[in-house]
Design a protein around this nucleic acid. Structure first.
Lengths: 221, 221, 221, 221
DNA sequence: GATGAATGAGATTTCATTCAT
DNA sequence: AATGAATGAAATCTCATTCAT
């Protein structure tokens, strides 16, 4: 059902910021830009190269995006929003933090879901990763929107399971960090370090979830 | 004693590839370049900016480094070597993979040691992280030297403890991945996401080590 | 009629490689470049000087010619082709080597024709002369295209008149060399050494033709 | 005896402007410069390249030659002098224009002698040829010294044989031009166009001399 | 909307020359 | 005499952006 919700949200988002009312050329431009930005980095990509790859005149890019940076933002911003969306949305709709019976159900759902997202948007996520540190506009989006909203929500979930005695006593932020490290460690290895390797996602998800569950279980003396 | 060895190695390396017979201006250039590359990224940094910050004529940069990329490589390459060095060295000197009594001693030593390294070379490590994906020269150094050597050695250590029954049955590469994820997750959070936060490294190292040890302990039914 | 053919050929060539779909500024650039290259030599001419003389921004040059050398080649190459053209063309159209009744008619036509060509393209010919030795691209054009085609055809003509008993017994290449020396000697003196002198071309052509005819006539005992 | 005289002159010249009181490094510099200038042209040769080839520090060149152009002049000037020397000298010593019995003896001697000179100094002659048009200093040497002196002397010789009835009635300058064309045509072909070809100099000299003698003989009706 | 020639500011790089050692 | 680090002016080239068509 979390999935359903995201479906709905995605369609909502798509309407507002993507591919609707885009001309064919505009779509080509975005595609070309994503490809080359991911390949060579934003700063090393020239607008003329994008135009060429998109099969479009140089001027056409600037008809749609005032500047090169505008083009970057128009690519990265909606994906950043989508990253927050599921978390934000549940809050908005008062979905309880207890929608998952067990912490491991939550972990499993979350990991599957984020993995799917990264796989789907791999190049754009790569662009985000590389460009966030160098563009204050993106950083602020990240530090002011994404992190607080997502972080806060996750911390609440963790505190919930901790208070139920399912997780070890420890500052929630540390718990969060370790869970996320384990999950991201897999996603990163899987999508960036060895994307060509033949991965069995379900098996690996199970491993990571077990790793976290045992690693963060309350210590029994 | 692993520390001692690295001390010795570092001094060895330093002699061979760094700061020897560098002119004062050359050192200033490197320092300026490291600062600005870390701050704005390689591609967005102009050589004139480096020259200015270094208090040097622009031509001086090109007397010492044939191209801007040469300058980048001369900064990143030695640090990449140092990253491998400890692992390589122990092999060379036949130090057994069993030099640590317990896996957690090994984890602790390794995490402390790598954290120290990243803290010390934070800007250069940042540059590496950002530039490796875009420079084939660096990628090959990484994929052909660093990864195989380090990866192999680590896998051997893990297999050792696994065969002793200290670690859960699982492909060694998965064990390795999860250990490294947990460690890197901390280092990354600590050094890049929230460097200004007031960290208690020893406490956090203990947490991460415990997380890994419990997470990867053999399951008792 | 050889003239007519070349007219036709020239117009053909002009269509394919010159001044078609050139912008006004592009033509100005070529003109400026020819002037200054001829005056100071390719290597001593700066693109900024060319831009200035052409009344164009420096960037404009590089929009049309990827490099400075490209600009040089785009100037020299078509003229080199035109140098070969008349010889090649006659071959193509099976015009017999006997189209001239007498060797001296051929010499006269050829000398007049080449002189006219050099007079018309003096600056570009000067550029060619100076740059061919230093640019492998041009050398190969010269050694692989121009020389074999022209040389072969001329040798055939000479052999023809020699077999008729109009020319002295001697290796054709030596005959060719001496004829060409005499002709080129005049053209060079006339166009490069003393262009300002008041030349009577017809008279001089007669002199040179007579010189060659007597110099290369079969020796009577 | 013309040869003897030139011997003497050469040694005289050598004393004044060459290789005497040159340090070993200075000689290396000159050699390197000649090589590279001949190979790539003066303007495209960098002083650092010369220094490298000469095995000398960059500064050393400027200790001996105030500027790069000074270096060029110090290479070209003495050879230009040597080109004039034989002609000038004979005048000075009142050697009669009639030192040769026949015009063809003169041609033969002159052609042999100049060919030998060009063969010996081929790279420097190449440099001269290419640089004279672009350096006023060299041009003036050429137009004011070399040409008038040599030209005047040659014209006198030609007039002499003409007045004896050995040469056709014609402006002496035209006679001179044609003789020189024929001679230079060979030297140029032999030394620049096809230096690698296996030339039989004596045979070719005979051919050229005969060509000139017949070409310029008085016409008998 | 689309084009692509034109721009000019600025990036990288070269290089003759100087100067302290 | 010799060195080679340093310089700064200038050269080649790049590129985001504008604008007339």
């Amino acid at each position: 059902m979390a999935e359903e919700m995201e479906q709905w949200l995605s369609s909502l988002l798509r309407l507002t910021d993507e591919e609707e009312k885009m001309t064919e050329k505009q779509i080509k431009i975005i595609q070309a830009a994503v490809d080359i930005f991911a390949d060579k980095g934003y700063a090393s990509t020239s607008t003329s190269e994008i135009a060429q790859r998109a099969g479009v005149a140089e001027g056409t890019i600037f008809r749609h995006y005032k500047t090169k940076k505008d083009l970057l933002l128009s690519i990265v911003a909606p994906v950043m929003s989508k990253l927050v969306a599921p978390f934000v949305l549940r809050d908005l709709h008062q979905v309880l933090d207890t929608e998952y019976e067990q912490f491991e159900d939550f972990l499993r759902a979350m990991m599957r879901n984020r993995l799917e997202f990264v796989v789907k948007h791999a190049p754009i996520v790569k662009i985000m990763l590389h460009e966030i540190p160098f563009h204050p506009e993106l950083q602020s989006q990240f530090k002011e929107q994404l992190f607080p909203q997502v972080g806060e929500r996750l911390k609440r979930i963790i505190t919930h399971f901790q208070s139920r005695g399912d997780l070890i006593e420890m500052p929630p932020f540390a718990l969060l960090r370790m869970s996320v490290s384990a999950i991201m460690g897999y996603i990163f290895t899987r999508c960036y370090l060895f994307p060509e390797h033949d991965w069995n996602d379900e098996e690996e998800i199970e491993r990571v979830v077990n790793f976290i569950m045992h690693g963060l279980a309350p210590r029994k003396e």
